[in-house]
Amino acid sequence: MARYAMVMDTRHCIGCHSCTIACKIRNELPTYMIYNPVTTDGPHGTFPHLNMLFLPLLCMHCDNSPCVDACPTGASVQTENGIVHVVDKKCVGCLSCIMACPYGARYHNHETGAVNKCNFCLDRVEEGMRPHCVETCHQKARIFGDLDDPNSEVSKLISENRSFQLLQELNTDPCVFYIY
C-alpha cells in the first residue's frame, strides 16, 4: 500500500500562486476557502546576507492526524494510503476538526454547513493521476509520490536534501516535506 506525500522544493518555488488558483478553480471553491495558500517567510537577516522562502501550504495529511481523532461523526477519515478527507454526507459541521487542525487546513462551507479540505485530489490519484496543484506547477516545486517506495522521486528528494516538516514538535507527523 502506498503512502502518499508531497515535497515542496522551496528552491524552485517563485511564489506565483498558480497552484492556489488551479486548486480554487478545480474544486470550485468560494472566495473565503483557500486550500493551498503560498505564504512568504522573510526576508530574514541583514543585507547582503538575506534569505526568503515561499511556503506553499496545504493539508499535511498527517500520519497522526488530530482532525480525524476529533471528528465525532466519523466523517473525517484517513484512507489506507494516508489521504485525509471528509465524507460530506456524514459531516454535521461541528468544527471540531477545524479547531483540532494546527495547520488551518480546513474550512467551514457556509453554503452546505459541512467542512471541506484538500484531499490531494483523491479522485485523480485513484485514477493514477497527480493532484491538480502538482500538475499546474510550472517550476516543478511540488512533487507528489509514494513515501513507502524508496525509489520514488519524493523519497529520493527527502533523503538527498535538507528538509523540514511544519510544526514537527506537535507530533502530527505531517506528510508534506519542505526541502531547502
Partner: peptide, 24 residues
C-alpha cells in the same frame, strides 16, 4: 444550534474514539 447541520446532530454519537462523542 452551533452545528452547521443541526438536523443531523444525532451523528455526533457515532465515533466512540472522539472525545466529543464521549462527552455527548
Amino acid at each position: 444550534l452551533e452545528l452547521g447541520r443541526p438536523l443531523q446532530a444525532w451523528r455526533v454519537f457515532m465515533n466512540p474514539k472522539a472525545i466529543l462523542t464521549f462527552g455527548a
